[in-house]
Simulated assay, not measured.
Amino acid sequence: MKKFYHLKINQTVLKIGVTTASALFIVSCAGVPAPTEQMAVSKVAVSNATSAGGNEFAPLQLKSAMEKMDGAERAMVAENYLQARQLAEQAQVDAQLAATTARSAKAQKAAGALQEGNRVLRQEIDRNAQ
């Protein structure tokens, strides 16, 4: 009777192990879902950085974002969704940095132009006052 009890326990453990392995196999086959939403968000971020003047004011950051976006698109084609998501997220961050840098540089350029305009007006006022 004792051997029969151990045999029954071993069969139960074996069934549990097979069931667990099967479940893990099914879950691993499902894989990582395609990051289509992240890809779209990243593409918009790159586009915004370009229209913000990234080519002129933040070329390195914009180039990095574009290269990472290209890599993400290649990973999507290869169905390597984890890498595609990571690269798309990095591209988004680089693009946001490029856009912010470009806007900051534009603002500094505009401030410099205003200061120069003020300097010219002061000179004109001083010349007319004499």
Score class of each variant (00 low, 15 high):
37 E>I: 14
45 A>I: 01
34 A>F: 03
31 G>S: 11
35 P>V: 02
68 K>L: 15
51 S>D: 12
44 V>M: 11
50 T>V: 14
59 P>Y: 06
27 V>N: 08
42 S>A: 15
61 Q>T: 12
26 I>W: 11
62 L>M: 06
50 T>H: 12
45 A>T: 04
35 P>M: 03
32 V>A: 13
31 G>R: 06
48 N>G: 09
55 N>A: 15
39 M>V: 04
52 A>D: 07
50 T>Q: 14
58 A>T: 06
56 E>Q: 14
43 K>T: 13
56 E>Y: 10
69 M>S: 06
31 G>Q: 05
28 S>F: 10
36 T>K: 10
37 E>A: 14
41 V>F: 06
55 N>Q: 14
51 S>R: 13
41 V>Y: 05
47 S>Q: 14
63 K>Y: 08
31 G>M: 06
45 A>L: 00
35 P>S: 03
49 A>Q: 02
39 M>D: 02
30 A>H: 10
44 V>W: 02
51 S>A: 10
37 E>C: 08
35 P>D: 04
69 M>L: 15
64 S>W: 07
67 E>L: 11
38 Q>W: 05
64 S>I: 15
68 K>H: 07
63 K>F: 09
59 P>F: 07
58 A>P: 03
25 F>E: 09
59 P>C: 07
42 S>T: 02
38 Q>C: 10
59 P>N: 05
32 V>C: 11
46 V>K: 00
26 I>C: 10
39 M>S: 02
41 V>K: 09
49 A>S: 08
53 G>A: 05
53 G>M: 02
42 S>N: 04
58 A>V: 05
57 F>K: 06
34 A>E: 13
64 S>C: 09
65 A>K: 00
32 V>Q: 11
29 C>H: 12
69 M>G: 02
34 A>V: 11
63 K>L: 10
56 E>V: 15
45 A>V: 02
64 S>Q: 15
67 E>R: 06
26 I>R: 08
